[in-house]
Design a protein around this nucleic acid. Structure first.
Length: 672
RNA sequence: GCCAGGGUAGCUCAGUUGGUUAGAGCACAGGAUUCAUAAACCUGAGGUCGUGAGUUCAAAUCUCACCCCUGGUACCA
């Protein structure tokens, strides 16, 4: 009996282009959906753009256009990228849609009715100049913990510390540079903790992979917190019913966007939304990256439970993409946009490469450029395409393109290929595409070996019918392998179908042999990758980096930290800066960023803890002259009392640079 | 430091509930071949499965300790 399935991928944010990291998810999902369809199951694939929030609003303002216009443009770009990668959505919609507004407001009302919404008065950073509340990442300043410059309001990139935007030193609005003030406002909170038992039950039922359940357990153990779901205007989003100038936080309506996309599709195609989304008749799966687990494993299901909708059957969580073993990097040219990739390379190379490495686990997936080229040329071209290319043309030219019947050996080969079907189906179903690909490649090896052994290029000179028999097996092998690869390589499969002169192939066709069948003229199926093409793509990505607009993850960058408020010489002189000699240095037990220093300031000794352990080794500091704030109020720390501070510049981590002192200065001398 | 997840051939990765001599692809060396997109085919070399101990007739697999990497979190006046 055929299954009925609804599938979603996470919604890409409307503030940036699709890149090859995004594509891991969309390709993983698309392959799965195509697989289901080829198996004869009914499977719908839904997605949409995630269009709301402050970054979109600001971005539109920068471009001097309405947000609606911006998200419209981006929607077209995203859709084009997906189309070009053969990612086949049944509906690619938008969260800025009437359906989404209706669902969001309705779900909110039901949650409110259920007593799951509370109002709290909270104080928040506000920019008087921009007339808006600033989300944490739009407040920037010096990290209060490690003093790294230009950090976000919620956490520091350098030391990893978390804090509140109000803790930042010299904080400023990242839009206009003004110092933000504090303003109180009512916010609405969703009482997530109320749903702890149901959520625990959901996770226990196998909602996610095991390693993700472990992660969730940590969150449960530390207790679920109320979730702030409202934002004050101006905010690009949906108004909250019954409130004045309040909008839903973008992450509230984003997952609801799945529902909106389904609803929109149902209305346009005469289908019943309640059946597709909310009944047992359809299985429901969400594909997501591990970074948005919190939303999909906690907030969203809790909201659904609270408002009377069913939750998904499973969450398929995948890891991130690394390139050559590292995070994607703009300066190294490995932050590759989908459109840049397409300027140089065939999308099916990437589909095949990802498939050959996806296992259904949450581990990160590495795109090694070397491996990518090798795998493409060796497998795709050398094994699959070559199998067709060494059999089709000969059959066409020498034997009128007509297959004959299989002999014993041919049958044996074809039966072997066909008998792998169940295992391949199982691998696809379990998202273990890597395993499926390994198996398919080994079958291609068998087929190539078969041709080798039967030497049709020799028999063609003396025994045409024997040659026909050999090539009949080869052609049938091509057909079966193509079916197996079709979820991964839809365009390639289409070309093979045309050349084999058959209707679109499905898994049902595996057992049907092509005997006494006339094929069409062979056309080249796929080209080899040249290293130059890949190099050119990386080069273009490097050049691209300057113009690339900030995406949701890529936060806006300021060139330098703004100059602080004016001060007088009297203010400056309050800080008593002295030349100090480092006389002892040691690590601090239990802290990997701290060094304990003993300083000689002209006969006076001071103990100072400095957060420079990642940048300096104790032995290189001994005897060094440094600049120290000598009259800093001693501070009690977890590890002891710090009686001063050493001056240094840099963002933090390994990039910390201490001020050095020119020859001649002696410990204790004052700096002025 | 704490919590996860990893560590298998030069590179990218498989290894099912513990079960013969630990596998594949690529890269490498040699051979044979030429139908095919310098493709395919045969042979070979390459591993103390992070380290050390333990359980067992048997450990890459289970237990413990330690080392290293990644992510999260903490200290960082």
């Amino acid at each position: 009996m055929s299954r009925k399935i609804v599938v979603t991928s996470a919604l890409p944010y409307s503030n940036g282009p699709i890149h090859i990291g995004h594509l891991v998810e969309y390709l993983q999902t698309d392959i799965w959906v195509r697989f289901q369809k080829i198996c004869g199951n009914q499977c719908f694939y839904f997605c949409a753009d995630d269009t709301h929030g402050t970054p979109i609003m600001i971005s539109a303002r920068d471009k001097n256009i309405e947000p609606e216009k911006l998200i419209d443009q981006v929607h077209k770009e995203h859709k084009a990228d997906f189309d070009n990668f053969f990612i086949e959505f049944d509906n690619y919609y938008s969260t800025h849609s009437p359906e989404n507004k209706q669902f969001s407001q309705e779900i909110y009302k039901r949650l409110k009715q259920a007593g799951s919404i509370v109002k709290k008065n909270i104080e928040q950073t506000y920019c008087e100049n921009c007339n808006m509340f600033l989300p944490d990442r739009f407040v920037r300043g010096i990290c209060p913990k490690c003093k790294a410059d230009d950090q976000y309001g919620d956490s520091c990139d350098k030391c990893g510390g978390t804090y509140h935007p109000t803790d930042l030193i010299e904080s400023h609005c990242s839009v206009c540079g003004n110092t933000p003030s504090l303003k109180k406002s009512d916010h609405l909170f969703f009482k997530l903790a109320d749903y702890t038992p149901q959520l625990k039950e959901l996770i226990a039922s196998g909602y996610t992979q095991q390693s993700m359940s472990n992660k969730l357990k940590e969150w449960f153990d530390s207790g679920l917190k109320d979730w702030d779901i409202s934002r004050d205007g101006p905010y690009f989003g949906f108004e909250i019913p019954g409130e004045e100038n309040k909008f839903f936080y973008v992450w509230l309506d984003a997952p609801i966007g799945y529902m909106a996309s389904v609803k929109n599709y149902c209305d346009n195609n005469g289908l019943d939304f309640e059946k597709l989304w909310n009944s047992d008749e359809y299985e429901l799966y969400h594909f997501i990256g591990k970074d948005i687990m919190y939303f999909h494993a906690l907030f969203f299901p809790a909201m659904l439970i609270g408002s009377g909708y069913k939750t998904a059957d499973k969450l398929f969580v995948h890891g991130f993409l690394t390139v050559n073993g590292e995070k994607m990097s703009k300066s190294k040219g490995t932050f590759i946009k989908a459109s840049t990739y397409l300027n140089h390379l065939n999308p099916e190379y990437l589909r095949y490469y990802y498939a050959s490495k996806l296992t259904g686990g949450v581990e990160d997936l590495d795109l090694s450029v070397e491996d990518f080229i090798n795998k493409t040329n060796s497998n795709l071209v050398g094994k699959f395409a070559n199998l067709a290319s060494r059999s089709g043309p000969m059959l066409k030219k020498k034997l009128d393109g007509k297959t004959g019947a299989l002999n014993q050996a041919g049958k044996k080969l074809i039966e072997k290929l066909a008998s792998a079907k169940e295992e391949i189906i199982k691998d696809y179903e379990n998202l273990n595409y890597a395993s499926a690909v390994r198996l398919i490649v080994s079958l291609a090896d068998d087929a190539n070996k078969y041709i080798e052994e039967n030497e049709p290029w020799k028999t063609v000179k003396e025994d045409l019918e024997k040659t026909r028999t050999t090539l009949t097996a080869a052609i049938n092998a091509v057909k079966i392998l193509t079916i197996y690869l079709k979820p991964i390589l839809p365009e390639y499969a289409g070309k093979v179908e045309e050349f084999l002169n058959v209707e679109p192939l499905t898994f049902d066709d595996v057992e049907k042999t092509l005997e006494n069948h006339t094929i069409n003229k062979f056309k080249r199926l796929i080209n080899r990758v040249e290293r130059e093409q890949v190099d050119a793509m990386i080069e273009e990505s490097k050049q691209d980096q300057a113009q690339q607009p900030p995406t949701k993850e890529e936060k806006p960058q300021l060139p330098i930290e703004p100059i602080a408020q004016e001060c007088t010489i009297d203010d400056f002189i309050k800080a008593d800066l002295r030349i100090a000699k480092v006389i002892e240095v040691g690590p601090v037990e239990g802290a990997d960023k701290l060094l304990a220093l003993k300083l000689d300031i002209g006969g006076i000794e001071k103990n100072v803890f400095a957060g420079i352990a990642k940048a300096y080794k104790p032995e290189e500091l001994i005897g060094k002259l440094v600049v120290c704030v000598a009259n800093l109020k001693p501070r009690k720390m977890k590890f002891g009392i710090s009686e001063g501070m050493i001056l240094a510049a840099g963002p933090g981590g390994k990039d910390i640079f201490m001020l050095s002192v020119d020859q001649g200065a002696t410990p204790g001398q004052r700096i002025k």
